[in-house]
Design a binder for these strands. Structure first.
Length: 597
RNA sequence: GGAGCCGUAGUUCAGUUUGGUUAGAACGCCUGACUGUCACUCAGGAGGUCGCGAGUUCGAGUCUCGUCGGUUCCGCCA
């Protein structure tokens, strides 16, 4: 089909172009018909330009009258200065006076109006994502994403990394997240899994001597979703040989600094701050603390101060070897309603209630707990927090980890409630020294916190050697072992995580012993990796950055769906293509699969 | 797996607290008028399985139970 091809995009013409004859192609985003003159806002992903049609040109005028929103047209005419400029649009000083309009395609009335200030629900936007993507805001997110791809590729090329593709169809490993499974037709009853990450492959590439591997890759996890979690997501995955933690940090910081410099024009200070897991949990109740919060709102542990109280709530927590701790909020008007809201919130976190002590400006103290606490303890608490008039303390008691993370969540709620987050900057940090093992209450067993190939700290190797023979009896000793394992955190969001891996067989065996993996299970699950490790595995370690979260942060949103062209809902449904969907009986038969229920 | 919120016109919402007349508004859509708008304006019009299914009731958008979908949080996500 012949048509008048564009000479310019809808975002680029300026007053300096006045007098030129141009052709624009795009979508009709608005029509204002004043009777003798019609104004058309023509849109493409670059911007919007006003096309003016005068009734003196009868043919064009009549065809302009028939235009509907989202029609695709080609408009040709002379660029001229507008009689009254529109300062709100970049092309607002000019218009194109049409002397030809060609309708390239019509459009049905759209299910929602395509406009920057979108009114449609996410559900509708995802169903008609192609219309949603016509909005500059979303299209720009994809453009930004594309730019970051390029920065990442360039950075790693400069750092002498090799991009290697790893299989999408791989062996299922039941550890960690649930796998998405792919049935094999050739081998009925057997399944591939989609990678949760290319973890094993990249470690094997190190055994191969590739030395520095990187890949921007899709990963898949069949777990329940959140605003910042999709069933398939993108990672910047890397692995390096002959490195220690600090070497990985410098490389990852390098690419982050490149991205921030080129996208935001911000020079981040290197090296990034480092905080241990224990420190982060104790002070912020989170392994991904948001350091932008004004006044910090650090957690204070007051267990020792209230140890001898007979206030039942505290006494019960302490006798069950739990803790009592709180955070202090200064200089805010904390109303009854706000306290009630926070109380309801901590109840959703399975706390009985939220204790508070409010030091009023008139010197009085409001708190439902005071009558249960001796004057000495009251004074002790006030001292622990350095509390003054105008301060409010929020206090939780119970099991240590639960209290700390509960207060961590209260801290975030307070920051939100009182707008305490400094949105003008991004705060990066490394959180390291995670525990190597955790205790799984459900199964009553010891499990790997990161994964089974994470190297313990040198200083804790003795603990591992001592505890691995009888893990059940040494749970406390084993869970105190620290791993060379680290997360990068930005603004309270986990950007990525990694570790130095175990490359020595003796340490690996000890870890498998703790995890109660028999020789046979080791062979079945990781035989290929352990096999490779027999032939000279170099010391190595790596990292994986959550690409979607990085883009979301750069776009100023928490919702990674805004940065993905075709996202899925929180129940992992693709609303546009209706995936997942039933398949033909024939397909199932080929695979030897029958559906129950 | 558990909890909260939402579901009413093509769209975004009001109406649900306290059951009762013909379920409203804005935007969009259709018709007409209008030569400088840019959220054009003005006049008129069409448009509803109140997510779905039971139940209570003389009567249900409104109350109860179930169910489906979206979303947020807890669990989960090495």
């Amino acid at each position: 089909m012949k048509f008048a091809k564009r000479t310019n995009t809808c975002g680029e013409l300026r007053i300096s172009d006045a007098g030129k004859t141009v052709t624009l192609n795009g979508w009709v985003s608005q029509v204002r018909d004043l009777g003798g003159v019609i104004f058309i806002n023509l849109r493409d992903r670059y911007g919007i330009t006003q096309i003016t049609v005068n009734s003196e040109f009868q043919d064009i005028y009549n065809s302009a009258k028939s235009l509907g929103l989202e029609f695709v047209i080609s408009a040709t005419g002379k660029v001229q200065q507008r009689t009254s400029a529109n300062p709100n649009m970049p092309t607002g000083e000019i218009e194109v006076l049409a002397d030809a309009i060609e309708i390239l395609n019509t459009s049905e009335v759209t299910p929602f109006v395509v406009e920057e200030d979108i009114k449609a629900s996410e559900e509708l936007r995802f169903k008609y994502r192609y219309l949603d993507l016509r909005r500059k805001k979303i299209a720009d997110n994809l453009v930004l994403r594309s730019n970051v791809y390029n920065i990442v590729h360039k950075n790693f090329e400069r750092e002498k990394f090799i991009e290697v593709e790893t299989p999408i169809l791989m062996k299922s490993t039941p550890e960690g997240a649930r796998d998405y499974l792919v049935p094999s037709r050739v081998h009925k009853g057997k399944f591939y899994a989609l990678p949760q990450s290319p973890q094993t492959y990249k470690q094997i590439l190190m055994v191969s001597g590739l030395d520095r591997y990187v890949q921007i890759c899709k990963c898949f996890r069949d777990e329940d979703l959140r605003a910042d979690r999709q069933p398939e997501f993108t990672q910047i995955d890397l692995e390096m040989s002959f490195v220690e933690e600090q070497d990985v940090f410098r490389v990852v910081e390098g690419v982050i600094c490149d991205i921030w410099k080129e996208i935001k024009g911000v020079e981040l200070k290197q090296p990034f701050r480092t905080m241990s897991y224990d420190e982060a949990m104790a002070a912020y109740g989170s392994d991904k603390p948001d350091l932008r919060i004004k006044g910090e709102l650090k957690i204070v542990n007051i267990t020792d101060t209230v140890r001898n109280t007979d206030f039942k709530v505290f006494a019960d927590a302490i006798s069950a070897s739990g803790i009592v701790a709180g955070i202090k909020l200064s200089g805010q008007d904390v109303t009854r309603k706000i306290i009630d809201g926070l109380t309801d919130y901590v109840k959703t976190l399975k706390f009985g209630g939220l204790g508070y002590i409010k030091y009023n400006s008139d010197g009085t103290v409001s708190s439902p707990m005071l009558k249960f606490l001796s004057e000495e303890i009251q004074a002790g608490i006030k001292n622990d927090f350095s509390a003054e008039a105008g301060d409010v303390l929020f206090i939780l008691s119970g099991e240590k980890k639960k209290v700390l993370s509960g207060l961590g969540n209260v801290r975030l709620k307070l920051a939100e409630q009182f707008s305490l987050t400094d949105e003008t900057r991004d705060e990066f940090l490394w959180v390291n020294d995670f525990p190597l093992f955790g205790f799984d209450e459900e199964s009553g067993t010891i499990v790997a916190e990161h994964h089974a190939f994470t190297m313990p700290h040198d200083a804790d190797l003795a603990k591992l050697a001592e505890g691995c023979e009888d893990p059940g009896a040494n749970a406390e000793l084993l869970t105190s072992i620290r791993a060379i394992c680290y997360d990068m955190v930005c603004n309270g969001s986990e950007f990525g995580s990694g570790s130095i891996r175990i490359h020595r067989g003796d340490i690996q065996s000890q870890v498998f012993n703790v995890l109660k993996l028999t020789k046979q299970e080791q062979e079945e699950k990781f035989g290929f990796l352990l096999g490779a490790f027999k032939y000279g595995a170099p010391p190595h370690g790596g990292f994986a950055l959550g690409f979607d979260r990085i883009i979301a942060t750069l776009c100023g949103t928490k919702d990674i769906r805004e940065t993905i062209a075709f996202p899925k809902t929180t129940s992992a449904v693709g609303l546009m293509d209706n995936s997942p969907s039933p398949v033909d009986e024939r397909q199932l038969k080929d695979l030897g699969i029958t559906i129950n229920g």
